[in-house]
Structures are given as C-alpha cells and as structure tokens.
Design a protein around this nucleic acid. Structure first.
Ligand code: SF4
Ligand code: SF4
Lengths: 162, 162
DNA sequence: GAATTAAGGATACATGATATCCCTATTTTG
DNA sequence: CAAAATAGGGATATCATGTATCCTTAATTC
C-alpha cells in the first residue's frame, strides 16, 4: 500500500503555487521542468487538483495554474484526497457473511468492530493531514531551505509565471 | 491506495485464534471454510503472520495455527504490518533534486518538510492501530455479535481445532 | 491568424495484487 | 511402519492499477 507518486508531485506543485504572487499563473510546462517530471503525466495530477476545485486555471499563452484558495486554507489532506481519492484505505468484503454457522440471509447490524477500528485509524491519518496547511509548509520551507536556492527558485518561477 | 484483502483476512483469522483455548491449533483449511476464502491463497497471509512471529504453528493432522502471544499483547498494527509490510505509505523520490536552480551535487540537509509531514500522518495511523489489541476486539465482538451465532461459531471452531 | 495553454480520450507498458497448482518436510494417527 | 494431514514455499497465470506517452479539441493571448 503505497501512495501514488502523483501525490508527491501535486504537493510540490502546490507548494510552489502557494508562493506565487496574487493573480499570476504557472504552466504545467514550468512545473514539470522545475521538478524534472514528465509534462504530460504531471498534467493528469494537476487536472485532479483542478477537478477538486483546489486550483484555478486559465488558457492560452501566460495561462496555467494558481491556487483557488489562500495557502492558509489549503490543507495537505485536500491535495492528497484530490489525487488519491476520498475512499477509505480499508475496504470490507463482508467475509463474516460466509460463516457457515450463520442462518442464511442473516441481517448484519451495521459495520463490525474490525472495520470500525481500521476506519478510525484511517481517520487519524486524515486528521493529521488536515492539520497542516500550505501556509504552515511555506514557513517551514523558508526556514529550512538554503536562502540562495530559495531566492533563485523564486526568480526562476516569476520569470515563467504568466 | 487500498490495503490488500489479505489484511482483512489476517485480522479475522487472528480474531478467531484469539478465542481459541490454550494449546489448541486451528488449520488453514478450517479458517478458509469459516470465512469462505480460497485456502491456498489464505495460506500466504497466514505464512506472513508466521514469518512475523505472531503465530505458532505445528505440522501434521491436528496441526495448524495458534497465537504466539496473549491476545492482550497482539495489536492490530502487528497484523497489518505483517501482511502489508512495515514500509511507509509515502515514498520520497527526491524530486527537489531536479530543481534547475540548484548547484549540481548540492547536498540535501536531511529529509524535507513535505516528507516529514506525510510520515507524521503515517505514524498517526500506526499509533491508532497500535492502541487496539485482540483482547479489546474480543470484548467488543462478544457484546455485539448475536449470542447464538457466537456460541455456534465457537463450537464449530472447537470441533475442528487440533 | 498563429502560438500557447488546459482538458481529456486512447493506448501501451510495468508493477503489484489475486489466485491456483504442485512439491517437500514434518507430524499425528492407525 | 504406512498413510493421511499439515505448514511452507516455489512457479505460474490472471487481473487491476499505476505509470507514461501521444493526440485532439477548445479556449485564450498576442
Ligand atoms: S467482520 Fe467486519 S471487517 Fe470483517 S467482513 Fe465483516 S464487516 Fe468486514
Ligand atoms: S521535497 Fe521532500 S518530499 Fe519532495 S522530493 Fe524532496 S525530500 Fe521528497
């Protein structure tokens, strides 16, 4: 059970978009170059973000993506769920219904303890991701990243932003 | 990202084994019949439990599986990790190294904020699973399951336990 | 009108999950 | 001792999903 690499890509792209000045857009091409990723495939991840309403897009030259909300309103969970889906990681096949000791067509009284426990763990994971916004991430990155690279990347992005 | 169905199978099998009297063993065949699962494939899941040291096995007629520890010492996380592996669900491809603004062979100072946040969420998931033991589960199931089915299943299992 | 862009359909490929079959060594049963 | 039953594990087939590329269309900018 491993998250798709598109999750990582989407998180990085949102981190960049979160640093973009208001009203500017950054294209798939620029984001792909910046991260060394296949442009066409990265595009699918960005489309997922778009379908989830997390980013806003414009067409034509100087078009591309920007965040649809303020970085403080966008959580890691938003991005992860946009790419990976909102489904639970534990899916119940209801194998208890195969128990030969049960009367046929016995009606279950809701979800069982095993499924509930697994789903609670799922929810703990989601809660942890919901707590972190891209404003939080921006602050941390600014402290941790080499200032030269930070500034250089910022310039690089601005030059290519429409 | 969905857990393998073997996780569900292994959890159910451990739930049954946790109710087994001391010194008794239950075979793959019995566990497969009880849950309506393909015997040969369920066997792989049980082998994972065995390799992780969670169950003890004996060969020959009347052989099979029993828990290696007391139910109160066996956690959901033990079983999930035995089947699904102990690896993190977020794997970092280090795509920041592709940033064209970086000097070549720039040495990263440890793991970045994005990866740390994802790994912390992972850890929250594991913590939730580590909190629940099969003694806890047993108590819940005893309260929730129809007493007739509960007793009938217990008898069924005892008849087939070596 | 030409260039650039997001969106999305079609397709191929790789990987991992699911499932079955078969063989071996070990242990109980008779 | 012989037969039956068991866990363990290798080999293989099948299917779903993730990864990746290519191409077309519609919208936008210049
Ligand atoms: S016992 Fe729970 S987890 Fe197992 S099959 Fe039934 S509902 Fe699903
Ligand atoms: S920035 Fe973090 S998550 Fe992204 S590639 Fe680097 S280490 Fe991995």
């Amino acid at each position: 059970m491993i998250l798709k690499s598109q999750v990582e890509w989407a998180l990085h792209c949102c981190a960049i978009l979160a640093g973009l000045p208001d009203g500017r857009y950054l294209s798939t091409k620029a984001l792909a170059e910046l991260h060394g990723l296949p442009k066409e495939y990265l595009s699918k991840a960005l489309q997922s973000l778009s379908q989830a309403g997390l980013v806003h897009t414009t067409l034509g030259p100087s078009g591309g993506y920007r965040l649809a909300k303020a970085p403080a309103e966008l959580t890691f969970l938003d991005v992860v769920e946009a790419v990976e889906g909102k489904g639970r990681t534990f899916v119940c096949q209801n194998i208890r219904a195969n128990n030969p000791c049960r009367p046929k067509d016995y009606c279950e009284s809701g979800s069982c303890a095993i499924a509930r426990i697994m789903w609670e763990a799922d929810e703990a994971w989601r809660t942890a991701l919901r707590k972190v916004t891209f404003a939080d991430l921006g602050k941390t990155l600014e402290q941790e990243i080499d200032p030269g690279i930070w500034a250089g990347t910022f310039d690089w992005v601005l030059k290519r932003a429409g």
